[in-house]
Amino acid sequence: MTDENEDRHWDAAFAKTLLGKTLLMNLTFLDDDGEVSERQQFFGVVIDATEDEGIVLDLLGEHDGDTYTLPPQTSAIEPAEPGVTTLEGEKPDFVANWIIHGLPDVPDAANDDA
């Protein structure tokens, strides 16, 4: 494995621009047969973005007060198109769509390890 593949997915300069911006996550979970088992949508403010730790969101809306850490893959993040809103009606700065093979995960409470 080379660093070339990793560099394609992580852009440190772009990651810095995400700090303080809102990000809408659309997650689609597929079962073992490749069928959609669940869809989740949540959004939050990017509070940290490093290649070592990933992209950390301080969630808003239904999950307000929780955090969620995304893999360090800026290549999956795009500017939100005009008219894109969250289920709460908020306009995000960026959008990421992920297809996940496996069971859904839920955002962790921000104070779980307190």
Rank of each mutant, 00 (worst) to 15 (best):
D3G: 13
D3A: 06
E4F: 15
N5E: 14
D7G: 03
H9P: 02
W10C: 03
W10Q: 04
D11F: 07
A12I: 00
F14L: 12
T17K: 15
K21D: 07
M25S: 00
T28V: 09
T28A: 04
D32I: 08
D32E: 09
D33E: 13
G34Y: 08
G34R: 12
E35Q: 15
S37L: 11
Q41M: 03
F42C: 15
F43D: 03
F43C: 10
F43V: 08
V45T: 12
V45K: 05
V46S: 09
V46R: 01
D48E: 10
D48K: 02
T50Y: 13
E51N: 00
D52K: 03
D52I: 08
E53I: 06
V56A: 01
L59K: 07
G61K: 03
G61D: 12
G61A: 13
E62D: 03
G65E: 09
T67P: 05
P72I: 07
S75V: 13
S75T: 08
A80P: 02
A80E: 02
E81W: 09
P82D: 05
L87G: 08
E88H: 14
E88Q: 15
G89H: 06
F94V: 01
A96P: 04
A96Y: 06
I100K: 06
I100W: 05
G102D: 10
L103G: 01
P104I: 09
D105T: 00
D108P: 02
D108H: 11
A109T: 11
A110F: 10
N111Q: 07
D112M: 03
